Simulated assay, not measured.
Amino acid sequence: MRVSLQHLCHGVISRACVEFSMMENVSVVTMFTLSGLNFPFVQRITIFVLVLLCYLIILLSNFTVIFVVVTDKKLHKPMYIFLCNLCINAVYGSAGFFPKFLVDLVSSHVISYAGCMLQGYVIHSSNGFDFSILVLMAYDRYVALCRPLVYQSFMTKQRVSLFVFVSWFIPQFCMLMNTASILGKKLCGSHINRIYCVNLMVVRLACSPPIANSIISWINIVLYFLLFLFICWSYVNLIKMCISSPHMWKKFRQTCTPHIICLLTYTGTLLLDLMYMRFGSDRLPQHLHNFMTVEFLLIPPILNPLVYGLQLTHIRNRILSFFHTKKKIHSF
């Protein structure tokens, strides 16, 4: 009996020590350390230059499309307004990653708790809006090609403004709830195995799995899966409508090809990142690991304005005429 009491007391004391140790660890998690940047300084400078170049290309290409759409009244149409918002979102999402990453390349690889939550929120909400606006663009093409007689009366300025507001609001609200569900959770670690903050990585550091976060994450997944099915429905109807008419099929190729390229690029890069985050191997070389974690932040923001700028005649001609005018002015 005495031995049992000793074992019981020892077990209680051990659990108390573990709980105290966990609480002690929780109290010091005010900063997170980021991984993937343990390279010689010369290599980091090289990466810094390349990343800065990519960031400047993203800003220049997206701001060019934004400027062209805003300044040309002929482009104040739903398709171009949606494209303008897609480019604005690329600037917004890039601002959540590139400036901090450039600083990390030449300094310490740490981020505050508040900074980590903010970075995760910006990156996640930007991804959500990308998909929402691509859904709108698919619906716009469906109405334009399959219901051309009611397009002008249906796609009014008020309705387009409402569509854009909803497409911004839904991902912002979803990611706000997702981020709020992990705020204040007890964390038993402070190391994030990425070069930037992601909510899932913070959740994995929690001492106990946050049930609310799991529920909200699944609601978000179901919501965006339904939106994906809506895109599929739109294109099935578009193809059925256009395939029997050579004229309609030509219009489909001209106006829908850029959207399809951007949609496939976005979904491909994002799914690759999600699959790698959950099932990826730690045995990959560090450079490849880093690329796998940033490809969805790098490829779509560069590709989208280039694809639309080259494919859509009005935007291409407007950009070329702008540079042609500048050249004439300099020649005088």
Rank of each mutant, 00 (worst) to 15 (best):
D130C: 03
F163D: 13
V166W: 05
A114I: 03
P246D: 04
K240G: 09
R159I: 00
V150G: 00
F225I: 01
Y121I: 02
V166F: 06
L183H: 14
K240T: 06
N127L: 15
V198G: 14
I123G: 02
Q119M: 13
V150C: 08
L227K: 07
V236G: 12
Y113G: 09
S245V: 03
L183I: 15
M177C: 09
N237C: 12
A144V: 02
K157C: 09
L226W: 09
V160T: 06
S112E: 00
Q119K: 13
I170P: 00
F173Q: 05
F131C: 03
Y224W: 09
S112G: 14
L223K: 01
F154Y: 14
C174K: 12
D140P: 03
Q152W: 04
P209N: 12
A138R: 08
S112C: 06
I192G: 10
A114F: 07
M241T: 08
R159L: 03
F163V: 07
F129T: 01
F165N: 01
R141G: 07
C174Y: 03
I211C: 06
F169S: 04
Q158R: 15
L176V: 04
F163P: 11
I133P: 08
G184D: 06
M175F: 11
V164S: 08
V166L: 13
N178W: 09
R159P: 02
T179F: 06
F165D: 01
